[in-house]
Design a binder for these strands. Structure first.
Length: 519
DNA sequence: GTCTGGACTTAGGATTGTGGTT
DNA sequence: AACCACAATCCTAAGTCCAGAC
């Protein structure tokens, strides 16, 4: 069936996703079909009444072929595409801020498509509309070269607000929230903000002992509200839980954080795993990532939880007298600039520093030091519950690595035998030629042993990292100055820890952290 | 207090780039 | 040159937190 242009475009959004799990989900299909029908002409709507009877395979094949065609382009053609993208980046990807040319993060508006909400999102599959110039607000100084809208179009508004960071904004059609064009993390402005964030977290170090003893005292408060706040704060501090703002139901997936925990998300065990007073957490957190943890807690916490759960239904709020606003208000009184999320930053960075101290040995090889670093990083990622899906190729690539290790082991054994032989020969002949052969064999063995060590480090790292995502903590929670100081102290090239973009993002830290930086 | 809109950070998955192997 | 695996980067959803209105 030949479709009208509008209906066809929306059909292609679905067709190109055909091999994605989304298209098997009832909610996705229902929302898509509903929005698709809105784009149809009256005649089309007459004919197309059931998604089950629509066949998108031709559309799907078109995109598969297109992707394949892209893959087989010649080197020159690929080079040309790259240059075109670079030209676009140069023209639109930068702005002038306070007289400096700064890289923009997202300089393109988001293309139209089908909304891909995470978890059980009630709006998945809905049509995300194309952004038109008429939707876009431009923010730049009055005396600057104001960007021109495309021919025949106008901006929604041009304003000059120097109290905000965004350069352009539009309202997105799914949640009616605002999307922004902002600077790249390598920009001076973003760098300063990150630095400020870590400085706030460092300041918490000076207050944390006092705060901890206070919330312990508050576990026995007369006021229910204070007790709830004190137990919640304990979780935020000890378990690095997120604040947990309330969400409008029906608008997003059902996920929770600390303050929004419900009775159904915790189970109390008087005794478990050989410990007393164990709390079992099981709830969907941000991005619907499961948080599952069994932790022994101090007795007053346990008793309080029993009290908070008494006479409540599973769906009731655990902390019914607590909101993120009231918690943060309390935190503000304890320290200037203190909010719930500062505890995550603080505990993440402190954990990294402690773990690095405990794990690194000066006499280790660079490879072993990097494994230690990754393990320290991993401790943080586990604390913050940063997960990733196990890649579909994990088992296979692990197997490949094991094979490589086996081959390398055999090579080492062989090299060792040859070295022995060369040594015997040199002893018998004692001339310069047999001496240089001996030296060569010795070097070969050394090199192979090094390679073997590196491979087995990789294998250990890989296995331990199967379901743990290190990048989120590395980019957002770990004060980069800790890592840089560690690199300097233990003579590890910083490129082994931070990629090029990461070094640009953390340029501010590279410039200021010496080897004795302490968080 | 409570609600809402706004601005910003944090997050995992998707896509792209790279370097080694076949 | 084609292919593959992994790392790096991009994308944008989903959080946090604040200010202002009532």
């Amino acid at each position: 069936m030949r479709l009208s242009v509008k209906a066809e475009e929306v059909a292609t959004f679905y067709g190109r996703m055909l091999d994605h799990e989304y298209t098997t989900k009832e909610v996705f299909r229902k929302n898509f079909f509903n929005d698709w029908r809105k784009e149809m002409t009256a005649e089309e709507r007459e004919v197309i009444k059931s998604l089950d009877k629509c066949d998108f395979t031709e559309i799907h094949r078109y995109f598969v072929d297109k992707a394949a065609a892209r893959r087989v382009l010649t080197r020159e053609e690929k080079q040309k595409l790259k240059e075109e993208a670079e030209k676009l980046q140069q023209e639109f990807g930068y702005c002038i801020l306070d007289g400096h040319r700064e890289k923009i993060g997202n300089f393109k508006t988001e293309p139209p498509g089908l909304f891909r909400g995470r978890g059980d999102h009630p709006k998945m599959g809905m049509l995300k509309r194309r952004v038109m110039p008429e939707d876009v607000v431009i923010n730049c100084s009055r005396d600057s070269k104001i960007p021109k809208p495309p021919a025949g179009h106008q901006w929604k508004e041009v304003r000059s607000d120097n109290t905000v960071m965004w350069l352009a904004a539009w309202t997105e059609s799914i949640q009616n929230s605002i999307k922004y064009v902002m600077l790249n993390p390598c920009s001076k402005l973003k760098g300063e903000k990150a630095w400020q964030k870590f400085e706030t977290a460092r300041r918490l170090r000076g207050f944390v002992d006092e705060i901890r003893s206070q919330y312990r005292a508050d576990w026995k408060s007369q006021e229910m509200k204070t007790r709830q706040r004190a137990v919640a704060l304990y979780f935020i501090d000890k378990l690095a839980l997120r604040a947990g703002n309330e969400k409008e139901d029906g608008e997003a997936a059902d996920t929770v954080g600390c303050c929004s925990l419900r009775v159904e998300h915790v189970q109390l065990h008087p005794e478990a795993d050989g410990c007393q007073h164990v709390v079992e957490f099981d709830f969907p957190g941000k991005d619907s990532i499961r948080y599952y943890n069994r932790v022994p807690v101090e007795k007053p916490v346990y008793k309080n939880l029993q009290l908070f759960m008494k006479n409540k239904d599973p769906q009731d709020d655990l902390f019914d007298r607590l909101t993120t606003t009231s918690l943060n208000k309390h935190l503000h009184e304890l320290m200037d600039g203190l909010t719930a999320k500062v505890f995550r930053t603080y505990n993440a960075s402190v954990t990294l520093q402690e773990q690095l101290r405990a794990l690194t040995r000066a006499e280790d090889s660079i490879a072993a030091k990097i494994l230690s670093y990754n393990r320290a990083n991993r401790a943080v990622a586990i604390l913050c519950n940063h997960q990733r899906a196990t890649s579909s190729t994990f088992e296979k690539s692990m197997q490949n690595l094991q094979t490589k290790i086996q081959v390398k082991k055999e090579q080492v054994a062989e090299a060792r035998a040859e070295l022995r032989k060369a040594r015997a020969e040199h002893k018998a002949q004692g001339d310069g030629k047999s001496g240089s052969v001996l030296e060569k064999k010795r070097r070969l063995l050394e090199k192979l042993q090094e390679q073997l060590a590196w491979l087995s480090v990789q294998a250990t790292d890989k296995e331990e990292n199967k379901q743990v995502a290190l990048s989120t903590s590395k980019l957002n929670y770990l004060d980069p100055r800790i890592s840089i100081a560690w690199c300097k102290r233990f003579r590890v090239p910083v490129e082994k820890i931070y990629s090029k973009t990461q070094r640009e993002r953390f340029a501010w830290a590279l410039a200021m952290a010496g080897e004795d930086f302490e968080f």
